[in-house]
Design a binder for these strands. Structure first.
Length: 243
DNA sequence: GCGACAG
DNA sequence: ATCTTGTCGC
């Protein structure tokens, strides 16, 4: 599928679109239920040929069994600009999700949701566009900060957005308060944490519990691992086919 | 202006 | 994201 005709073309348009969508995010809701289908999505790029391959892998959230897989190929829709990642990745991701024969009850993204400069990371953006329940799991702190969670699997610490220029005590009426935007979660004992944030229609406690369930054997959720390997394999296959 | 910066 | 070998450890 081609990139949507109304997809933002400039940074200014993208910022305006985020401003419009941010009001529609619902940062609360239940976690997955017994037998729910969870989708993992991820993308791989070939900047040389301006190609992007997205993968969507459906798992049974309870058993972690793979139920279905789908991929989609497209043109890169937007340059990589921190804070505007969704505009680069989502067109292909939407196509991959559409290629599934079943609708996921939850989508786990590789990146952030509410933990975003304007509170609309790709997970939240995807949730608002599709109405699906979503959350994000990122591998690095981006611009946020947290204290180190305990070293045991299951430990976590709040992920904070610290307003710029806040060194001392912000007197009454001065500055903006620090805001909890997610959690640094230790999914494996002794291994660096991942960063969980709400996307849409799910709460932070629920997203954290789901992450720990999906990341029982590895640092990253099984959904992300499966989607990551699938899209890279698909990209490699595609590259070798055209050569 | 400069540096930092999800993937 | 992607470019890239071997190596230490469970």
């Amino acid at each position: 599928m081609p990139i949507p005709a109304d997809w933002p073309t400039s940074e200014a348009e993208a910022l305006a679109e985020q401003e419009r969508l941010r009001a529609l995010v619902e940062p609360y809701g239940p976690g997955p239920a017994e037998g729910d289908l969870v989708a993992g999505v991820d993308v791989a790029y070939d900047d040389e040929r301006d190609l992007v391959v997205a993968a969507a892998v459906l798992l049974d959230h309870t058993t972690l069994r793979v139920v279905e897989e789908a991929t989609a190929v497209g043109r890169i829709a937007f340059p990589y600009i921190p804070g505007l990642l969704a505009f680069r990745e989502l067109p292909a991701v939407l196509d991959a999700l559409a290629a599934l024969t079943r609708t996921p009850d939850l989508v786990v993204c590789d990146g952030y949701g509410l933990a975003h400069p304007r509170r609309l990371g790709l997970a939240s953006h995807l949730g608002v566009l599709t109405g699906l329940r979503t959350y994000g799991v990122a591998k690095t702190p981006f611009t946020f900060t947290s204290t180190a969670p305990g070293s045991e699997r299951g430990s976590w610490a709040p992920l904070m957005d610290v307003p710029a220029g806040e060194g001392g005590e912000p007197g009454p009426g001065e500055g903006r308060a620090e805001e909890v935007v997610g959690r640094a979660v230790r999914t494996r004992t002794g291994v660096k944490p991942v960063f969980v944030s709400v996307g849409h229609r799910i709460g932070l406690d629920e997203a954290t519990a789901s992450t720990l369930h999906l990341a029982r054997d590895y640092r990253q959720p099984e959904t992300t691992r499966r989607a990551d390997s699938l899209c890279r394999r698909a990209l490699t296959d595609l590259q070798r086919a055209s050569a």
